[in-house]
Design a protein around this nucleic acid. Sequence first.
DNA 1: CCATCCACGCGGAAACTTCCGCCATCTCGC
DNA 2: GCGAGATGGCGGAAGTTTCCGCGTGGATGG
Lengths: 255, 255
Amino acid sequence: MPSKRRPTTPPAKPASQPDDGAGIRVLCVDDHAVLIEGLKAQFSLDPSIRCIASLPSAERLVEEVGRLKPDLVLLDIEMPGPDAFETADRLRHMHPRTRVVILSAHIRDGYIDAAFKCGAWGYFAKSDELSAIISGIREVACGRDGTFVLGPKVKERCRPVAPQATGVRTALPLRRVPAGPSDARPVTPLSTLSTREVEVLRLIGKGLTRNQIASELSREVKTIDGHQKRLMRKLNVDSRSDLMRLAIREGLAEA
Amino acid sequence: MPSKRRPTTPPAKPASQPDDGAGIRVLCVDDHAVLIEGLKAQFSLDPSIRCIASLPSAERLVEEVGRLKPDLVLLDIEMPGPDAFETADRLRHMHPRTRVVILSAHIRDGYIDAAFKCGAWGYFAKSDELSAIISGIREVACGRDGTFVLGPKVKERCRPVAPQATGVRTALPLRRVPAGPSDARPVTPLSTLSTREVEVLRLIGKGLTRNQIASELSREVKTIDGHQKRLMRKLNVDSRSDLMRLAIREGLAEA
DNA sequence: CCATCCACGCGGAAACTTCCGCCATCTCGC
DNA sequence: GCGAGATGGCGGAAGTTTCCGCGTGGATGG
């Protein structure tokens, strides 16, 4: 049954660093000092969660995680410096026992997809209730592999379209378990696009003309036209400009 | 001399509600609960500033200000619900003794301009140091009329191009004192645009075609072309798409 | 095994956008 | 009060983009 998170398995004992008497040790990464303070203040009310350090960017994140071995990293996305998703991906390979949770100001399909693909364990919005964020952190810390927890506000945007059946092979399976109904994969509007289409959409978002896109992908201009047309139909917009705005809005490209 | 804020006048006694023994009474408006908590936590360390209430949007802001009469409103921009700048403007007319300070995640020319025009008393970035935000709040609370305090990160983006001389009459003088060197007005790249040009740029950012813009403004298409061309030259970009991205980046339009 | 669906690639005509001028007006500064 | 420069407004030609249709090949499913 396609219910919520991992409902079949009971909350197993923490898979990584269990609570060594000190609760969940969190490293917070955000360029907004005020927000970090908010998290710290909130954690201080809860003996089972502790902020052991904070960083203003993903710059030295990998090193710090290697040094401090936190149970969990709370990671913002739009920060100056290195890309958060790439860093999370590197973190997954270098320090697999530390679980990354995205905490973003924006709920964008591109971000949610990227978060999943980079191996994050959850995605929360800054506008989510504090209690929801806290319990989400706990859920991730105790969850088994394959867990992907969404904040309440995020869940709203991901229709429960259930296991996608048609030819939608968006890139790769990545980590995630082999068998199992895999209820984890979040379904966003972008999920209905082929990889080629996503690629074209991203380039559109970056402001390239069809001609530039064509030469970038080594294709005829008319081919790009086709993709563009299909994108517009699928995403239910009717101009190239709207495609561009959508790409930006959904985090496929920077403004 | 074009120095910093109001350097000539010494920090006069608070103009509005002076510290009635309770310090500066602040109302915080932000849809990110975590951030509100951060502010509260920080204020609690400082007896002279107090958060008396908070709201998740500008929805009921005017009423609440009327009820609570705070000295200062800390106002976020990108929130669901009513436009922050419009609300600030209404606030200025309804409750002129309450001073509004913008606290935004983004430093965008369009936002800074709008903040100034709507009568806000300051603009800070969420990435600014907490100490800077705190002292900025104090500066605003004690400042005389005409004050416009910028956070450190914001100041960086506003070149001190000093009093603009050329024919740049961007709309109206608004509040701001009559005489005086008026060092307040922040100078951003958008300041070099005429009102018409800004308007066209905004419509471009909203995704309208030249034809739609033309009929929107009741002008010939070719006229819009001219504006567009000039915009591209002034802003140093060379495609309509880039104009659109710029408009979005600078907060003139939503993605 | 064939029918179907869809990603992908492309050609030609229609529509739109951009580039080149040209002109009137308005504001400054001298 | 007069020229320099900026703004607002347009027309026509050149260049791009969009629309419509057609064909291929892989994957799905009777």
